[in-house]
Design a protein around this nucleic acid. Sequence first.
DNA 1: CACCTTTTGAGAGTTACTCTCATTTCATGG
DNA 2: CCATGAAATGAGAGTAACTCTCAAAAGGTG
Lengths: 213, 213
Amino acid sequence: MTTMTAARSPLSPADRPQLGLRERKKIKTREAIRTAMYALVEEQGYEATTVEQIAERAEVSPSTVFRYFPTKEDIVLTDEYDPILLEELRSRPADEPWPDTIRDVMLAAARVGVEEDLRVARLRTRLMVEIPAVRSRMMESMSVTGRMICGALAERTGRDPDSLEVRVYAMSFIGGLMEASLYWAEKGHQGDFTDLVDRALDVLEHGLGTEKP
Amino acid sequence: MTTMTAARSPLSPADRPQLGLRERKKIKTREAIRTAMYALVEEQGYEATTVEQIAERAEVSPSTVFRYFPTKEDIVLTDEYDPILLEELRSRPADEPWPDTIRDVMLAAARVGVEEDLRVARLRTRLMVEIPAVRSRMMESMSVTGRMICGALAERTGRDPDSLEVRVYAMSFIGGLMEASLYWAEKGHQGDFTDLVDRALDVLEHGLGTEKP
DNA sequence: CACCTTTTGAGAGTTACTCTCATTTCATGG
DNA sequence: CCATGAAATGAGAGTAACTCTCAAAAGGTG
């Protein structure tokens, strides 16, 4: 998951001098491409930004851009927070009820994800609303997160991670959180994103209820 | 919605002689393109099928194909069942509880959608599983259906169709049904699709519950 | 039949993405 | 410190989905 699910700072090259020069350079290139894309998109919009331009600004060849990111959309979206999220889920006390677990983890992820880099979080969600291809790619990435949630839920509750029920639960969960992100962006990123996630989690846990706000 | 939401036969040209020749020809062209695509995909697979080939077999120009369908994926997926679904929702007695309404309508839609043309339903869901672009496009189309459900739900319960709660509910609903479709296809279309939808609706209505099947 | 509108076809252009191969850059053992 | 192997990069050609434009054709109408 991307928008609401940061749980730790993304790997930066300076942080790990133990890595070989090669690995550090790869991380730098990745970041350079992302930074170039962010800048160009803010300058001239998503569609108007071509991969060639991104490559030029990042000082790599177009071939290299595609080596690092399978699609243009991935440059904006990809993050590798899923493993961290999984670890977080696993580190919870085994007797904690599942709803509490998932709620706390998701809320924390949302909080960190936004605090980490508000500008990027806004850009991403804005593009999710405006560019169908970005939104689609995001949904794809979310469904991967969904499968991970299936696994975690199964591990904790002894269910079959591949049962229809678990999978439907996970995907409906993901769908709801996705909509919360879109809602946030559509309303111009007003208010606290964490509050929206909290309200979304209420709906996912208890349904719509009978009160009419 | 496409896979599980047919509620009446798609418009066929012979059925409406009152339409002008122009309109009837358009419908025929649409069907010809679809039929050509279905056949080619079954012969040689989705990726190997180019729009040029589709155009050739449908005896139209490539330009025309793109005039009828915005993307290649849409040729496989598009159907206009949303208005029918909406009408169905509206025709329900006003005092019927919402969960019953949506359940019955969805189950009926699933039933008809599969019975209408099992081969097409299978092909579509199979492609949803195998081809990411098709799956993405399907999710997009589903989110449109989601907005429609927001409207219907709001109409019946007096809620704000654009409130976070309603939108999260609708999208989580859509996500769950989507997963049921994928599940059906992944398991080789074994068993009755309607049963899967029924079980999915249980999860969406009551959560996972405590029983472990 | 003539006129107007809509639809179609042809073709050129853009761009994301793929594949291949030669060149460069890093890692490593002597 | 250099030679050898492995990995990353760049260059370039190729594909196919889409877009745009404009002229030809076909349907509707007086």
